[in-house]
Design a binder for these strands. Structure first.
Length: 485
DNA sequence: AAAAAAC
């Protein structure tokens, strides 16, 4: 049976607004948490990443909030500034009443603007603990009218480093309030803390708590002994050729270093961590979301909640410190029903961590070894062939025919096509690979350029004729002879 | 031990 928002107890106006946004079917966490929240119960909500937890707590709050009362009635805390921004934006998207205001408050930004927005009267505040406490002590934020308190990424908020601030904030909120904790993960030791802050909470758990969405293809690359991760990463990136990837490292320093290395190799990549200024952080996220940067090297600042459309890969260059963070990191991909790939680089010293992850995920990771040059080239040629087939049936191809006509006065059509392919193939490889072979561990069989030769043996066959129009199936993995090993 | 979070 398919549930609708109608049966959850939300108001007609809310449902009409949701339908206008093309939200018609609630997710499991929404279907189960919303009725309890509407009844006034405290809730602990646990569901996989990317299953609409924000709406699960925001919709009932919006339904019950007093729009005529210009006082803060709901406070939502998040562990990072960008997450606060994102949650604030999401809630604004659910609002159709101009009287209702959401203010986002976090550090690293001018406080005056945030104060004046609060003064103009906001019913909902989303923020990070430090700045919330700051504004509370200045008296610019008052919680005396607070009815709802939500911890997003609750287990992280109850961790050392956050718990003290969170406790201070909770202590300044009225006892007569509704509290909700939401996260994809909830370690048993953390779960015990929950009873300290919630009153007879209902726990809503969707599916097996520790498992990741199945549409995420999880792979572990074993690093050969004596190899550095940096050396192993290069061929992996070449094979996967990720369109949009988040590469996780353990420290800020490592993020800066790996970014420089990848940039020097000609990749479109930038760094994201707490050493950057707030404006740098926000600008980077914007560029990443707009596809102006293909890859981002980040610390666990990006592990939780951050949403980037169609992220194709999450790469654990360093394995995370906790299994929980593994779940959150890989949850950045495979969102909204899309597929995603999660790659972990595993050194022999990391074997134990890998076992822990597999145990907690209740599933094995696919173990693969570092791709060879031949595998990389085969994959690249495969991709090129696919692109050619697409171009052959596309509309724009016709506009290039005059060029072919002109060139065929001097050259054979096959030669023209092959030269065009060579150009296209070179485009798929980073610049340093074409010119300077020093960095290559395993030199490519086909030594760059168009100087003919290069083939080290390998039964070189007669050039295959280039097919006109649609091809026959069997051409599958056939590699163009000049590129053959 | 590191990361995040206030000035």
């Amino acid at each position: 049976m398919t549930l609708s928002f109608n049966s959850l107890g939300l108001s007609e106006a809310r449902i009409r607004h949701l339908e206008a946004m093309e939200f018609t079917v609630p997710t499991a966490i929404q279907a189960q948490a919303i009725p309890h929240l509407l009844c006034g119960r405290d809730v602990v909500g646990q569901a996989q990443t990317g299953t609409g937890k924000t709406a699960a707590f925001a919709l009932p709050i919006l339904d019950r909030i007093d729009v005529k009362l210009p006082a803060v009635q709901a406070l939502i805390l998040t562990p990072t500034r960008e997450l606060a921004m994102q949650v604030g934006q999401a809630i604004r998207g659910f609002i159709d009443d101009r009287r209702l205001k959401v203010v986002t408050i976090y550090g690293g930004q001018a406080i005056d603007q945030q104060i004046s927005r609060l003064e103009r009267g906001a019913q909902i505040v989303v923020g990070t603990p430090g700045r919330v406490l700051d504004l509370l002590s200045r008296g610019d934020l008052k919680l005396d009218q607070l009815s709802w308190m939500v911890l997003d990424e609750a287990d992280e908020m109850l961790n050392m480093g956050f718990i003290q601030d969170v406790e201070k904030i909770l202590n300044q909120a009225p006892i007569e309030r509704q509290t909700a904790f939401f996260s994809a993960t909830m370690e048993p030791s953390v779960r015990k803390l929950v009873t300290k802050f919630l009153r007879s909470p209902i726990t809503v758990t969707i599916e097996q708590p520790k498992t990741a969405p199945t549409r995420i293809n999880q792979v572990a690359y074993m690093i050969p002994r004596g190899w550095t991760k940096a050396r192993a990463l290069q061929p992996i990136l070449e094979l996967e050729d990720p369109e949009a990837a988040l590469i996780f490292v353990r420290t800020r320093k490592a993020a800066a270093e790996l970014t420089s290395q990848l940039q020097a190799a000609g990749h479109s990549v930038d760094e994201y961590h707490g050493d950057l200024s707030q404006s740098q952080r926000e600008r980077l996220l914007l560029r990443f979301r707009q596809r102006q940067v293909r890859w981002v090297v980040a610390t666990d600042i990006a592990a939780r909640g951050i949403h980037v459309d169609d992220l194709t890969h999450v790469i654990n260059y360093d394995l995370p410190d906790s299994v929980e963070n593994y779940v959150h990191r890989i949850g950045r991909t495979g969102r909204a029903g899309k597929e995603g790939t999660a790659i972990s680089l595993v050194h022999s010293l990391d074997r134990r961590k890998l076992r822990d992850i597999e145990y907690h995920m209740r599933q094995r990771l696919e173990i693969v070894s570092i791709p060879t040059r031949a595998q990389i080239e085969a994959r690249q040629i495969d991709k090129l062939q696919g692109q050619i087939r697409e171009a052959l049936v596309g509309e724009r191809m016709a506009s290039f025919l005059p060029i072919v006509a002109q060139l065929s006065e001097e050259y054979e059509p096959h030669a023209i096509a092959a030269a065009a392919l060579q150009m296209a193939y070179d485009q798929t490889r980073p610049t340093w690979m074409r010119s300077n072979q020093d960095h290559v561990d395993e030199p490519p069989a086909y030594s760059g350029g168009g100087n003919g030769g290069g083939g080290n043996g390998g039964g070189s066959s007669k050039p295959k004729p280039v097919k006109r129009g649609k091809s026959v199936g069997s051409a599958g993995n056939q590699v163009s002879p000049s590129l053959d090993r």
